[in-house]
Amino acid sequence: MSAVAAAGRTVAFERRHALALAGFKGPRAAEWAGLQGLPLPPAANRFARSADGGLLVARLGAAEFFIEAAAGGARIIAPLRAALAARPPGVYPVLREDWGFRLGGDAVHEVLAQVCNVDFAALTLSSMGVVMTLMVGVAVIVIPEAATAGGPDEARGGGRCYGIWCDPTFGAYLGEALKTVVEGGGGIIIGESK
């Protein structure tokens, strides 16, 4: 609960562009995901990653899936979207144009405490949990990430990192609100990754 600006505590924030996203839902969505070779989260509100970490599959509720491929993921996403457009039985496409952000650092929880009432500090990476909640009044998907090279906390000795996704029409507002909180606590804005 102590201030972000305490000596040695940092937090960093960036917006991520050009996300490669896809989504689908329906009574046979899980079965279809397996047929496509996607890593399948074991239960609702859980996520799974491909072995190389390049593909994130989040299960939003029982029968809806949110997919993000890492940079260069068009070769995965485009065929997936094409397959969905063909409308396999019991599987319906969900257009995803979300804005993505990353928030991290050893003081990230002080920032999150000001914008969201979820106890992120109590989440463990191993639980592979997907959090769907409101952040500054905006519906968001939040997934904890292990610190990655090039991530906002790379040079700061660790700390937790979170991927945050939202409806694109709320993206500008969410980004500005988070920037205000981060800067107000002495954090840094990394900018925008391509």
């Binding site: 500054v136 009044g137 029409t169 507002y173 609100a177 909180v181």
Partner: peptide, 13 residues
């Protein structure tokens, strides 16, 4: 407190 008033903008903003 700090007030948050969500505002939506279209991509053509």
């Amino acid at each position: 407190g700090r007030s948050f008033q969500p505002e939506r903008r279209t991509p053509l903003d």
